[in-house]
Computed example of a mutant assay.
Amino acid sequence: MRAALFTSCSFAWTYQPKAIPSHNLLVQSSLEHGACSTKSEASSRESGLVNGEAEKVSGILKRRSVVLSGASLVSSAVLGFPGEGLAVIKQGLLAGRIPGLSEPDEQGWRTYRRPDEKSGGHGVGWSPIIPYIFSVPQDWEEVPVSIADLGGTEIDLRFGSAKEGRLSVIVAPVLRFADNLDGDATIEKIGRPETVINAFGPEVIGENVEGKVMSINVVQDSGRTYYQYELEPPHVLITATAAGNRLYLFNVTGSGLQWKRHYKELKKIADSFRVV
């Protein structure tokens, strides 16, 4: 008896379909009530999962959905579901990815704003993440974030372009670095530009930044201060700021060839980051 397993996971937000040209966007459906349901259809002619096995798989999925609902979600490949069901399960587990891109402007650039409904509070008891915005060329697309990534659950977002490069946004509780900050931290309270890059640069590149900082720039915008850095090697542009009770690290990078050919675009992306 063969059983076909269909799994749909739902979370406390509603996807509103938009005409955005991205193969990474999730299935357009409404997901509600923060629960997972499992249905099995059996054929008496073939062999497959028995009821007990189906109930076991259902329990595993429900427990996994609870663990993943407040963090970056792993690919369904980890769960080991083969065949056509893989795409459906993957889409459900990546439900935290809510489209936030605008339509392209006259130059072909789109603005991303972190949706208020997006999951990822980074810890029980933490206030909602203050939204941020940045701009990317039209061919850049959101990339799934895994809890196995360097940086773990503090990586809030990834974007990338096979031609030009990639970016990531790290959102970390400031209390992990200092215990004397109130609920409205500023980057100045965390430290001077040199102090911040020495402390948090390794969070981005995975190694000590000594001798790699090529330039430092301080920008004021709408009452908020941003520290901007350029590092080589590896080639990376970092914009750091703080808001609420979190530190934001916006990181743009590319290979040597991408850096050479598309530095102007990568710099424009890095300079566009703002917390709103």
Rank of each mutant, 00 (worst) to 15 (best):
A87R: 08
G80V: 02
A87D: 07
A87V: 08
S69C: 12
V88K: 07
R97Q: 03
S69Q: 10
L79F: 12
G85M: 15
A95Y: 15
S76W: 00
A71T: 15
L86H: 08
L94K: 04
L93E: 06
G96I: 07
L86K: 07
P82I: 02
A87H: 09
Q91M: 06
L86Y: 00
G70E: 14
V67F: 08
L79S: 06
L93F: 15
I89M: 11
G70W: 04
A95M: 05
Q91F: 01
A95E: 03
G83N: 08
L94R: 09
L79W: 07
R97N: 03
S75N: 14
V67G: 00
I89H: 00
L68G: 03
A87E: 13
G83Y: 07
L79G: 05
S76V: 01
A95H: 09
L79Q: 06
V78E: 09
K90W: 04
L73F: 13
G96K: 02
S72T: 15
V74P: 03
K90C: 03
G92S: 09
A77H: 14
G96F: 04
F81E: 11
L79A: 04
G83S: 06
P82L: 12
A77W: 13
K90R: 12
V74L: 02
L86Q: 10
G92A: 04
V88M: 10
Q91A: 14
R97L: 04
S76N: 08
S76L: 00
P82C: 08
K90P: 00
G70Q: 13
L73M: 08
G80Y: 00
V88C: 04
A77V: 09
L93M: 05
G80S: 11
A95I: 12
V74F: 07
V67I: 12
V67W: 07
S69Y: 13
V67D: 05
S72W: 09
